[in-house]
Write a protein that binds this DNA or RNA. Sequence first.
DNA 1: ACCTGAACACCGTTCAAGT
DNA 2: ACCTGAACACCGTTCAAGT
Lengths: 192, 192
Amino acid sequence: MATTRDRLIDGAAALLDEGGPAAVTLREVGRRAGVSHNAPYKHFRDKRDLLAAIAADELRVLAGRLTEAAAGETGAARIGAALHAYVGWAVAAPERFRLVFGAWTGPHAELEDAAQAAVVAITEVVTAAQAEDEALPRGTERLVALLRSTAHGLVDLELAGHLRKRPGAPGPDDLIDELITLVRGGGTAQRH
Amino acid sequence: MATTRDRLIDGAAALLDEGGPAAVTLREVGRRAGVSHNAPYKHFRDKRDLLAAIAADELRVLAGRLTEAAAGETGAARIGAALHAYVGWAVAAPERFRLVFGAWTGPHAELEDAAQAAVVAITEVVTAAQAEDEALPRGTERLVALLRSTAHGLVDLELAGHLRKRPGAPGPDDLIDELITLVRGGGTAQRH
DNA sequence: ACCTGAACACCGTTCAAGT
DNA sequence: ACCTGAACACCGTTCAAGT
């Protein structure tokens, strides 16, 4: 049986998916959890803190998916699998994606820890890929930053409807494949 | 002398810059324009429509900056200049950047027109660059989508504080230069 | 420790009415 | 055509009080 705190988080996450952060009213969150409209204040400092708990959960899910997806591949394909997992995660839950990477006024410890763990996960994937594929550029930090940014931007533009105006235009997954190819110098060499 | 509509937009844009969309209350917008708290409804359908007018203005500014920045360069440097202008625009006005590319529920004609014009502007830059630099990959649509996504993602992660945890880590401008290099195959050839 | 109900200060939006 | 003031239905947050 779930604790009140868990039910509050679940209800808030459902409301978030349904209508974005504005739809996450503490009154409705409380109602769905079977408590009063301000019971949430006994478990979270305020609405922001409740949303941050959801965001941190989601970042931990993301880190796990990236690691798992990359584990079944070798070389640059590790990176491709991780980035495809990133896109799949974001597109499946756009509001959670937007929440995680949205404007957080002021620091939040749990959220920052989870974000750091996600960066570590993708960094490990890229390090392994670089060790297996000499066609990948050296410099893990720069490459990670570039790959993260592109995957993130692809998703954000796709969700905003700014990427595919023309039917048949390449989507995020197509463009990730192209990115991997370009980053490897456009060639196919995979020496070890 | 500015019309009421202009003063409403100016006041709303200032409030947006100061504290994000939540800070744009129609009451304060009206107060700054010297009208009542619901006079805005005579010029805009609702708050969303007022924000969309700001976003459309901003997209037109962006399109102009991209074109202007690229005009002074040749080959791949056109793209570099345009993307640096994109980053400069976004970082200078983070809230406007977030507004423009944020979650717009339902279509908005003026905003979509302005977005289309911005895509046309960057597409023209890339087309010109491709004609001058054979090291750039062919396929304008795919390259434009990739470049836009990376620049957008760089800015979004930077603004969220997710890009540069370590002091001295590469910033958006550094990574754009690296992107251009990688996209040209890592080489420096620039035959015409 | 956890929860409730009333209350406060907001906010977007609507409406009748004014010039 | 453009604007105002009152009103409505919200919402986040606080507080005193209950078990």
